[in-house]
């Protein structure tokens, strides 16, 4: 069973429906015990990192996610669920889970034609092959909605890059049993569903 972590951060049902569509059994839970006993977890999220981190702590889910990672079981982070894996975010100046070295910063452009949030479909440039994106080609497009981007310390954890204006940021990261996308794979059409399906099949 895959557990989708409920921490009041967004549309969990979209993720759950996408799981159903690709034949993955899932359940939504905010119970740390349930999370720890799952085979795999999905850590989704939209909205503000500040309140998300608070809610995770309040429910004891922050430790559960870190323990789950250390137990070597597969984790899929989506959007805010990628950003919170890092050490720190500029959004509300919050300390995050620290599972991946790096921090999130806000997009800043002098060119006013570059809108924030970065909303819409953008392509990924694959940095290295990873089993969860084995069906994805360089240049495939996915749906993004975010104002902050992940700045990783270790290049070998960056699976793909995406460009917005003059910014090139990490759009997919992976570290051992952890895999995360900045884009919403549950809202990225059939290509997004392919990634989800591959995560379901992944045995790191």
């Amino acid at each position: 069973m895959i557990v989708i972590i409920d921490y009041d951060a967004g549309n969990l049902r979209s993720v759950q429906r996408a799981c159903e569509k690709v034949g993955i059994m899932s359940e939504v839970s905010s119970d740390p015990e349930r999370v720890l006993s799952a085979e795999k977890i999905i850590f989704p999220g939209v909205g503000s990192a500040e309140s998300a981190v608070e809610t995770l702590k309040k429910r004891g889910l922050d430790n559960a996610i870190v323990d789950f990672f250390q137990a070597g079981k597969p984790i899929l982070g989506i959007c805010l669920g990628l950003q919170i894996l890092l050490d720190h975010t500029e959004e509300g100046n919050k300390k995050c889970l620290g599972m991946v070295s790096g921090a999130c910063e806000r997009f800043k452009f002098s060119d006013r034609s570059l809108k924030i949030p970065h909303i819409g479909w953008n392509d990924i440039q694959i940095n290295f092959k990873h089993p969860v994106i084995e069906k994805i080609k360089d240049g495939d497009q996915f749906y993004f909605v975010h104002s902050y981007y992940a700045k990783l310390i270790h290049e070998e954890e960056i699976v793909s890059y995406t460009e917005y204006g003059n910014m090139k940021f990490c759009s997919v990261l992976a570290k051992d049993n952890l895999f995360a996308t900045q884009f919403h794979l549950e809202k990225s059409g059939e290509l997004g569903l392919k990634i989800l399906k591959s995560f379901g099949d992944w045995n790191p």
Binding site: R13, R17, Y143, V145, H184, S188, E190, G192
Partner: peptide, 8 residues
Amino acid sequence: VAAQVYIP
């Protein structure tokens, strides 16, 4: 719609 359409 949400059960069939996987775009925003």
